[in-house]
Design a protein around this nucleic acid. Structure first.
Lengths: 190, 190
DNA sequence: CGTCGATCGTTCGGAGTCAAATTATACGAG
DNA sequence: CTCGTATAATTTGACTCCGAACGATCGACG
């Protein structure tokens, strides 16, 4: 019915190149466009509202998570922000140095560190988030509210699939083999 | 009608936190989920098929672009891969060192450098892409083909909006002010 | 108590990343 | 031919990011 479906040049070329190989075209297009959209959105936000506040995307996300969740343990913040614990250590120290974030030890568990916004951090987010949200509206302005809901729901399905079955899937793929260490990063003890 | 719309805990909290502030909820959810999905997908792919081939996400994307486009000028590859020219210089040199990519000067324009896959690179991609595509299918397995098309099309609209009007939008926002230099990077001449 | 495995945040090595400065080449105007 | 301008890719410097190793702490059990 629609007949109207714009495909990018790259996707056409890929289809041609893969002429002989049986592939999951629709799924390939979804993944490719998720990543393109994420890069485009991130770049736009960084170069508009975030640059002005001297915040990286990651730093903003961390502030946002702590803002909406309230005082939180670092591992939850890292999980929610989608970054590693090690990265969060650095980011949170930077934000602490700028007076936007506070770090406090847990009253009864000495291993934990709790993050919360300072008053200055709260003020910043109250001012900055509306600007941020305005740009979110801009990048999505070609979609109706209903289309936004639909796309968001589709993306949630992807996230949930990976979160619920990704680990298991990776183990199946490796099938007993050890998981091949990263090339970068700290070397194994020697 | 639907009544059934799964909202993550984070989205609920955000809605509560922003109770008083008028916001574009659907657009916020789209952006948040684009980014979550992109991270989840990238992480899954890196930790499954790419780790085994000792390739980072970026390195794979570069190989993929050169594979489907054929011999290409570096600036086009950088553009298509969504990375800066400087990053591509480093990545392509690494891949050249591993014998997967070739660099050649342009026959008539000495400023240009052309990238193409070596025979080994072609072989790798012919073997690796089906595995990669299999995981793309995995992450999208909760969506029907039709839903995949629909989500992909929605994301293309986002990408197109940013590509076609992002620059103009940023200029409007800054409204004459200079664009606030990045904190990192080479210092301005002094 | 004391020990031991689990779990927390931090440290640290290496690769990625961007954008300004730089270098090299192309090409039109005088 | 010789500039000057435009446009390549590369270099450079500060920074981000991941994840294995690490040290501190907890909680359970003898």
């Amino acid at each position: 019915m629609p007949g109207h479906r714009s495909i990018t040049e790259a996707e056409k070329l890929a289809a041609a190149k893969l002429g002989g190989i049986p592939i999951h075209r629709e799924q390939m297009a979804v993944v490719a466009n998720i990543y393109r959209a994420a890069s485009a959105v991130r770049q736009h936000l960084e170069n508009s509202v975030l640059r002005g506040a001297d915040l990286t995307w990651t730093a903003f996300v961390v502030l946002w998570v702590v803002w909406v969740w309230g005082e939180s343990e670092t591992r939850h913040v890292a999980e929610e922000a989608g970054i590693s614990k090690g990265t969060l250590t650095g980011v949170s120290r930077t934000l602490e140095g700028r007076g936007l974030l506070q770090r406090a030890g847990h009253p009864s568990d000495g291993r934990l560190v709790l993050l919360s916004l300072t008053e200055e951090g709260e003020t910043l987010m109250r001012r900055l988030f509306p600007e941020f949200n305005q740009e979110e509206a801009f990048v999505a302005s070609r979609l109706s509210d209903e289309e936004c809901r639909s796309v968001a729901e589709g993306l949630r399905q992807v996230v949930r699939q990976v979160e619920e079955h990704g680990e298991e899937r990776r183990l199946t793929l490796l099938d007993g083999a050890e998981p091949a260490p990263r090339r970068s990063g700290r070397r194994a003890k020697g």
